[in-house]
Design a protein around this nucleic acid. Structure first.
Length: 447
DNA sequence: TCTGGGGTCCTAGGACCC
DNA sequence: TCTGGGGTCCTAGGACCC
């Protein structure tokens, strides 16, 4: 059996832990530049705020309905997430985080009443962290996701599946102990688009073919689905029928690519600003690369104008550069800047840029192979000093100790600082709450 | 005026090889 | 007139997730 545990409206719930006055109020958390809503409390959902909806479209609800908006405080959310994962790990040795707010728990071999176990887990997270969670339990991951969805819906809209059912299944739903008729009834009352792996496009095509509910999907001929859609949908249906296709173990290990990209606070028209931003993104990417112990064999840079500004001329070039495998910020940053210079054209309002590290490999393995290659290429055995890791280690530990950006590449320093001392391209985050749990100078004060 | 930032996997089609 | 066939590798793009 698998359980999927996730925090309800994670970002909003975390903000409420540290500011209980937000309880019961419509609340959204905004993306960088306060551009779009990336988390909504139940009250905000009830007002009709959509996921990823642009902030300017719902800003009016502040005055009319008391909507509160905060800038995303990812450092705080990540720390609370780690605490939640640690609690989950008390209940099974096999806990695999799936995203910042959810984890799969493998209960293989665990005997007893899993509903009771998960209710206990839920109560513990609520007591120790103040975060509300939902849990779905089932023999496959896709069914556990579905059970989780049902548990949430029963909690929020008891009328959807009926009050009696909702009382039993709210918050923790164990699909593995339901009778076949009862599970069928739940599937018949759930839209096909609510299934994990069925997105908007696929849902539209399925509905056009008369498949509207989860039950309809489960009863569709599998070879037909594979022919008309893909193996992905085929696996999804097999899982919905109770046969596991995805084990907990095939969860990802090290990342296969690292992307750092950002929309600019205001449009960038000059090469200097682009190079500065790309330099900063590249060095952030290099930090992440080193923290997972990898080296990159290639790098991609893109810059782009805003597709939403229809009167602007559009330009969104990108370029891939091969690298001799490295995790050295200096080489990664200088390659990225070189690419940015080649991509830039004057006369465009650039709105966003990004740096992607590709072809990632384990640093130690790559190091051994690299030395061999170098010895072959340079018979005198001269090792390139640029790849000695000591400088990078020193940089990383200084930045850990004194805060990100304490030590940085010369090209990333702000030549274009405005009056406020920030570069034009840097993000706006006017509404961010303190990082209560990870910064000494932002601790909650108790008088 | 103002529209997120990460990731994964699959597929189709072209280049290339024998 | 008629112009092989089968395999692999790589890349770009799409769909999906949170």
């Amino acid at each position: 059996m698998f359980a999927l545990v996730d925090v309800n409206n994670m970002y909003c719930s975390v903000e409420r832990v540290f500011n209980p006055r937000l309880e019961g109020r419509p609340l959204v958390v905004l993306s960088s530049n306060d551009g779009a809503c990336i988390a909504r409390s139940n009250e905000a959902k009830a007002l009709g705020v959509q996921m990823a909806q642009p902030w300017f479209q719902v800003r009016g609800l502040q005055k009319s309905h008391g909507l509160v908006a905060l800038s995303a405080n990812f450092e705080l959310y990540a720390d609370m997430s780690a605490r939640m994962m640690a609690i989950a790990s008390r209940y099974s040795p096999q806990v695999v985080p799936y995203s910042i707010d959810e984890a799969f728990i493998d209960f293989t071999g665990v005997r007893g009443d899993l509903t009771a176990v998960c209710r206990h887990l839920r109560a513990t997270v609520l007591q120790e962290l103040g975060l509300p969670t939902s849990v779905g339990i089932a023999p496959t991951k896709t069914l556990a996701k579905l059970a989780n969805h049902i548990a949430k819906t029963c909690d929020r809209q008891p009328s959807h599946y009926g009050d009696a059912v909702s009382r039993r299944l709210a918050q923790v739903c164990h699909a593995g102990v339901l009778s076949a008729p009862e599970l069928n009834a739940l599937m018949a009352a759930t839209e096909v688009g609510d299934v994990w792996g069925v997105g908007r496009k696929t849902a539209d095509r399925l509905r056009a073919g008369g498949v509207a509910s989860v039950l309809d999907l489960v009863r569709t001929d599998v070879p037909t689905l594979r022919r008309q859609f893909s193996v992905v949908l085929e696996k999804t249906v097999v899982e919905l029928r109770g046969t596991p296709c995805a084990g907990v173990e095939d969860a990802p290990m090290a990342r296969q690519q690292i992307l750092v990209s950002r929309s600019f606070g205001e449009a960038v028209t000059q090469l200097d600003g682009i190079v500065e931003a790309v330099s900063e993104f590249a060095s952030r990417a290099a930090e992440r690369l080193r923290s997972q112990g990898s080296v990159a064999g290639a790098l991609q840079v893109f810059i782009r104008t805003s597709p939403f500004r229809q009167n602007d001329r559009q330009h969104s070039p990108s370029a891939v550069l091969p690298l001799r495998p490295t995790a050295d910020s200096r080489r990664i940053v200088s390659a990225a800047c070189e690419a940015a210079r080649a991509l830039f054209r004057p006369g465009f309002n650039y709105a966003k840029a990004g740096v992607m590290l590709l072809d990632l490999h384990d640093a130690e393995q790559a190091g051994r192979q690299g030395e061999l290659a170098l010895q072959a290429a340079e018979p005198d055995g001269a090792a390139p000093s640029a790849d000695r890791p000591a400088l990078m280690q020193a940089m990383d530990s200084l930045n850990r100790r004194f805060g990100r950006g304490a030590v940085r590449m010369g090209s990333a320093t702000s030549a274009l600082a405005n009056d406020a001392g920030t570069a034009a391209w840097s993000v706006r985050q006017d509404r961010r709450t303190p990082r209560y749990t990870t910064r000494w100078d932002e601790l909650r004060l108790v008088h």
